[in-house]
């Protein structure tokens, strides 16, 4: 299996703080990989670095074999690497349906396609995906009026609407009702299995990530602490120490 995303010795500092210290990781195509670590360990910073939200100080990021570490956010997104945010980011004053309709894959469409209304096919797909995350009833609700958890689900649906090559999910289950979490996990597994979508997921909910990911990376204090299959990482003494604060 080839790696769709390769991060090599990525370093990011903010003044004297080394938020990401020579981090290397690989995500094989079509898999689900987890990224865990205590608060402030540099997980979201790594997402920001990969997606071009801020320039990196050293290292490389390759997506589908091509260097992307010098590209801007928009260019990276256009290659099919889409992320969601820890604090859900949706177009707050637009309806859920409009949020979806605008999230269609723009990299396969030119500027001219902007000057057309969304087609029936797109509308159906938008409704389908909203239904997929359980928000079909809310399609005419302004996204900003949705609850935190619903906004996270909408953001996920928007990301799927974009038909990406790979998704970076920042804590997809945070703030989501426990009964919904199971459904969400199920949905993520489904898109991975049926569409072959590669997922890199930051998650604090251990049972969730252990159940989802085939491979897990653990960060602590900006460094890669451990990696391996879920069982191995879970029982790794360094990981347990990092979470309990002994490290």
């Amino acid at each position: 299996m080839t790696a769709i995303l390769e991060v090599e010795a990525l370093t990011k500092t903010f003044g004297g703080v080394v938020a990401n210290d020579r981090i290397s990781l690989e995500v094989p195509e079509g898999t689900i990989v987890g990224l865990i670590g205590p608060n402030g360990s540099g997980k979201t910073t790594l997402f920001n670095a990969i997606t071009g939200a801020h320039p990196i100080d050293a290292g490389r990021v390759r997506f589908q074999g091509r260097e992307i570490s010098t590209l801007l956010t928009q260019a990276i997104a256009r290659r099919g690497l889409i992320r969601t945010f820890q604090q859900p980011r949706v177009y707050r004053r637009m309806t859920a349906a409009d949020n979806m309709l605008l999230s269609t894959n723009v990299r396969k469409l030119g500027l001219a396609s902007l000057f057309a209304a969304a087609g029936t096919k797109e509308r159906e797909r938008a409704l389908e995906l909203l239904d997929f995350v359980g928000l079909a009833d809310k399609r005419d609700t302004r996204a900003g009026d949705l609850s935190f958890g619903q906004q996270k689900l909408l953001e996920l649906a928007m990301a799927l609407m974009n038909d990406p090559e790979m998704l970076l999910l920042d804590e997809p289950t945070a703030g989501i009702n426990p009964t919904l979490i199971d459904r969400l996990v199920d949905r993520l597994k489904t898109v991975n299995r049926e569409r072959g979508l590669t997922l890199l997921i930051i998650e604090h909910n251990m049972p969730v990530i252990m159940g989802l990911a085939a491979h897990i990376y653990c960060l602590a204090h900006g460094r890669l602490l451990a990696e391996g299959p879920p069982q191995a990482v879970r029982s790794d003494a360094r990981v347990i120490d990092a979470y309990l604060g002994a490290a």
Partner: peptide, 19 residues
């Protein structure tokens, strides 16, 4: 829709690949 999206959250629109 894109105009409204830029009004609501330009960085998000950017991150979704909108020009």
């Amino acid at each position: 829709l894109a105009l409204n999206a830029i009004r609501d959250d330009e960085d998000k629109a950017d991150a979704m690949g909108l020009a």
